[in-house]
Amino acid sequence: MTDNTQVSSQYAIRLQDLTKSFGETLAVDHLSVSIKRGEIFGLLGPNGAGKTTTIRMLSALIAPTSGTAWIDGNQLGKQDQEIRRNVGILTESPGLYESLSAERNLAFFAQMYEIENISESVEKYLRMLGLWDRRFEAVGTFSKGMRQKLAIARALLHEPNVLFLDEPTSNLDPEAARLIREFIASIKHDGRTIMLCTHNLDEADRLCDRVAVLKSHLLALDTPTALRRKLFGRSVVFHLHKTLPKYRETVKKYQFVKSAEIVDNKLLVKLDKPEEQNPILIRSLVQAGAEIQFVGELRRRLEDVYLQLIDMEKSQ
C-alpha cells in the first residue's frame, strides 16, 4: 500500500499545514489535523477564526495559500472535482432556490452531483427529514427549520463519506435545533465523517467526538472530556446535609487532594483519580460525622474550556 492509501483508509480528512491568506489577513494559519473515519469533529472558535474558510478549503471551494489536505483520499488542489463529488456541505446560510419546490431544489442538485436514481434519493431524504408531504411547496413558504432540513438533505443526497456542517442549528428555535442535532447524531451511525462548525458549545459537547479550538491557528485539539481535564483537572462534588469547616479539613489531610472548598452545601474536591480516591474520602467523611447525600463528578461545560483557551490566547 502507498502512503496515500494508508492515509485514506485510516483518516477521512487530513490537513497538513493548511494556510489561507486574504491579502494581508491570515485567515487560517498552518493547520494540521487528522480526522478518523466515522468521527464527528467540532471546529470551534470566535467569529473570524477561520472555521468557514477551513470548511471552504476542504470542500474545494477556495484554494489554500499553502499547505494541503486529503479529503476521503483525494488531495486538495490536485483532485478538486473528486473532492466536490465526494463531500457534502451545509453552508452557513441554507442557500435554496425559494421559488422552486423542495423536490425541485433537491432534484436540481441531484443532477449536479450526477446521481443515478434521482427520484429515489430525493424521496429518501425528503421522507427522512419529514418534508415529503410538503415536497411540492415553494421553499419560500418554508420555516427556517424546514429550510435547514432541506439544506441538510441536499448535502446528503449524493451519499458523501465526508460531511461539512457550518452552523447547522444557528437561528433555529430549540425544537428545530434539537431535531437537527438528533439527525446529525443519527447519520454518524452510517459511518460518515462529519466536520461540524459551530458557536453552540453545548451542541459540540453533545455531538462531537473531538473538537479543535481555532483562532486562525490551532489552540487546542482533543475530546471535550480530555480538554476539560487538561484545563481544569477532575473535581468531585460531595453534597452534604450540613457543610462544616471540619469536613474540608478532613479531606485536605490527604496528599492526593489537590484542593478542597465549600460552596453552599457542597464540598468541592479536586482529584487526579476519583475512581480510586473517592472511597477513601467517603469513608473519612462518614467517620467525621458528615451526612453524604450525593457524590458526583463536577462536569465543566465546554464553554468554560473554550473561554479559558481564548483568554489564555489573549493573555499571550
Binding site: 471552504r56 470542500s59 474545494a60 471551494l61 472535482q81 466536490r84 463529488r85 463531500v87 456541505i89 453552508t91 446560510s93 441554507p94 442557500g95 435554496l96 432556490y97 425559494e98 442538485f109 449536479m112 452531483y113 450526477e114 439544506a151 441536499r154 448535502a155
Partner: peptide, 14 residues
Amino acid sequence: RTHTLEPLLATPIT
C-alpha cells in the same frame, strides 16, 4: 440574494 452560489459551486460543476 438566496446564497445559493456556495452550495452550487460545491457541486462538481465547472
